[in-house]
Amino acid sequence: MRINLTSVYVDDQRAALAFYVDVLGFTKHRDVPIGEDSWLTVVSPEAPDGPELLLEPSGHPAVKPYRDALVEDGIPLAQFAVNDVEAEYERLTGMGVEFTQPPTDIGVSVIAVFDDTCGNLIQLIAEKPA
């Protein structure tokens, strides 16, 4: 068994695709129209055969209260690994991305949390060299 797909709910799939590809640097993997929406996934260019992230429409009525409560308390919904959190923080803030938590040393790793502009908070993490 392996994890091949996980998802984040997004308010607007096309805006989400633009953010996840143009800003974060992921690659579009699948874009299959289903009704008014699409089965829309991205992968990391560093792991093209790795897990896909599904950009799932946030239309279900349970999504808004769920996400609002998490975002209010600053709780991220997904975690992406990077080599250098501080460098990504500089790069992304330079592109207008807002962080709810600046790079924070938590001992074994450095983390930061940003707003993905699609309704979610995302955590960046870099393991510190042993």
């Binding site: 308390d73 709780i75 938590q101 938590i106 001992g107 074994v108």
Partner: peptide, 14 residues
């Protein structure tokens, strides 16, 4: 200027 999540992670890890 910290969120609840940040305060929780700092109290646990530091």
């Amino acid at each position: 200027g910290k969120t609840l999540f940040e305060i929780c992670s700092i109290l646990t890890t530091r």
